[in-house]
Amino acid sequence: MAITIGVLAVQGAFSEHITTLKQLGVHCIEIRKPADLASHPLDGLVLPGGESTVIGKLLQELALFEPLKDLIEADLPVLGTCAGLILLAGQIAEDNTIHFGTMNMVARRNAYGRQLGSFQTEAEFDAGGKIPMVFIRAPYIESVGVDVNILARVDNHIVAARQGNMIVTSFHPELTADLTVHQYFLNLVQQKAKTCIA
């Protein structure tokens, strides 16, 4: 059974996620308006990097916010990278904005400063070995609730986490050739798909 992943495509680096997912044999749909959600049932959703202020605003204005929030709350597997992490955060440090707010954590935007603070490093992901991590004006997670599993840390800051159906990274797995994070997400998607059929 082919897996179909919806990739939010209102702004940012969505085409890079699609390229990566296609390498893993996945069918992708670009989500730009509510009608795109109706075109095919989704097995998972990717919230890409970009500018969270822009994506958050377009979600509202293009009437995508409610239907996507419903899907996330109905346990659809979600991968949020960078701006996607901000969209899912239950709280944003020094900012009253809340987007989906479905994940029990406090995130800090532009936590490493301006573009001069952007960097690349390698770190352990889910205790499965080191992977390359690219941080672009990235956020990090300041704290998480008890129901959130920490998947990766860099310099004592949380940079990847999972809570149930939601996986977030403050780095950009779609910008490197390493497929670990997307494979981890697809494993969750496949698990959920099996449970549904059973």
């Binding site: 702004q11 969505f14 970009g50 500018e51 573009q115 004006r137 910008l175």
Partner: peptide, 18 residues
């Protein structure tokens, strides 16, 4: 070098934007 890659990456994040 690495810095040039990171700089190209920031432009990727701006795509689809104004």
């Amino acid at each position: 070098n690495n810095r040039y890659e990171l700089n190209k990456n920031l432009a990727q994040m701006l795509k689809g934007g104004v």
